[in-house]
Amino acid sequence: METIRLEFQPKIKAKILELLSSFSSDELKIVQEDPDFEENKRKLDVSLAKIKNGTAKFYTFEEVDTVLEETISKHEN
């Protein structure tokens, strides 16, 4: 299957859905878009740019484990 993204005026949504409903579920599947897609994409683009330009901060497994252990122990009480 292929996926496309449509942008349309709200007033024609019913017409579009009526047309699309004429296809079987084997032919067409309507997938609701993630409402946070654009914001998530922006954040990932910023992260990727930092990786590419060398300004991203990376952590070893041991460093992450230490931070997690400290956080867990702080909130256990």
Rank of each mutant, 00 (worst) to 15 (best):
E39M: 01
E7T: 12
L6W: 00
T3Q: 02
L17H: 12
P10K: 07
L6Q: 06
K52S: 07
E38W: 13
K52P: 04
T66E: 15
T66W: 10
S22L: 14
L17E: 15
A14G: 10
L20D: 07
D65Y: 00
I4D: 02
D36M: 11
E33G: 09
I4Y: 04
E2N: 12
K43P: 00
V67F: 05
V31S: 05
L19S: 08
G54N: 03
L17G: 10
E76G: 01
K52T: 06
E33P: 02
Q32I: 03
V46F: 12
Q32C: 00
K52V: 03
E27C: 10
K29S: 11
E62W: 01
K52Q: 12
K13T: 10
I30K: 05
L28N: 06
K57I: 08
V31A: 08
E2R: 10
A49R: 09
N40C: 00
I16W: 03
E63S: 02
Q9G: 02
T60F: 01
L48W: 12
P35V: 06
E62I: 03
P10Q: 08
D26K: 15
Y59I: 11
K29N: 08
F23N: 07
A14C: 05
E63W: 06
Y59Q: 12
L44T: 03
V67Q: 06
E63L: 04
E7K: 10
V46A: 10
N77I: 14
Q9N: 14
D45W: 07
S47M: 14
P10S: 07
E63D: 07
M1Q: 13
I72F: 10
A56Y: 00
E18D: 15
E69D: 14
T71P: 01
T66A: 13
V31E: 10
K13M: 04
I72W: 06
E33I: 05
T71F: 15
D26P: 02
I72Q: 04
L19Y: 11
K57R: 14
K74Y: 09
Q9M: 12
S24I: 11
P35Y: 04
E33W: 02
T60P: 00
I4A: 03
K41S: 11
I30Q: 06
T60C: 04
E33F: 07
T55A: 05
K50L: 07
D34F: 11
D65M: 05
I4M: 08
F61Y: 08
E69L: 11
V64R: 09
